[in-house]
Each structure stands twice: as structure tokens, then as C-alpha cells.
Amino acid sequence: MGKLAIVLASGELEKIQAASTIASVASTLGNEVVVFATMDGLMAFRKDVVENRTWKTAGELGKGMLESGAPLFIDTLRQAKEVGNIKIYACGMIMDMLKMKLDDFVDIFDDVVGVSAFLGMVEDAQVLFI
């Protein structure tokens, strides 16, 4: 099959959840998947946000997901990394701008990359921007 790249720019839980589900399942079906977390999408992976489950939500659905206590995108992506072909990258520009280190985020990223490196990785991929 093909190569799928997802630019995760939204910090809204509903969008991240949907994107992560698609990315994770695709990665188990012979696709090469690349996720690039940037802007608010990167902030959703901050340790304090993940620990306290203080993600932004678009509305009632997202609040319900938080209240249900169900496993969310972090768990799904971790499972995908165990069994699928998925790489997750943090945006270097945001980290430089906010003086953040990879250590400020949960342990899920393969590397920190800039936009040029990301574009190089996804030349032959279908790209979804979320």
C-alpha cells in the first residue's frame, strides 16, 4: 500500500483522536505512516497536559471522551508503534520558539524535525492536514 503523512496542527482532542485512530490502523496494514505534530497539535503531547488530561475540546463530545476515562490517542499511538510502521515527529520550530525540549513531552516522539526534513519524508506520501 502507500505512505500516509498526517500534519497534526490542531490541539482539539476530537481531531487528534480521529487522526491518531486513522494513522494507527493504517500503520498496521502495510502503510508507512508519518505524523508531524506542530502548533497546538504538539502541545497536546506536553507531559502536564497528558497527565492531567487537560486537552482542549471542540465541544460536548470531547468532554464526554475525557469523562469516560477511555484510553485516548496517546495509548493508541503507543500501541501502533509496537505493532505498526509509524513514526511520530515533533516540530522543531515550535520547540525553539517556546524553548522547550523533548523532555517536556511524553515519550512518544521518534525525533524532532523541521519543516524541510518533514517535506523530504513525505514527498511520495498522501498528506492529511488536521
Partner: peptide, 13 residues
């Protein structure tokens, strides 16, 4: 008790 894609991911593992 788990939701999509939880059961699938567990099966794949």
C-alpha cells in the same frame, strides 16, 4: 469496555 480502535489494536498485537 474498550472503544475503537482499542479492541482492534489488541488483536493486532
Amino acid at each position: 469496555g474498550s472503544y475503537c480502535p482499542g479492541p482492534l489494536m489488541e488483536l493486532i498485537k
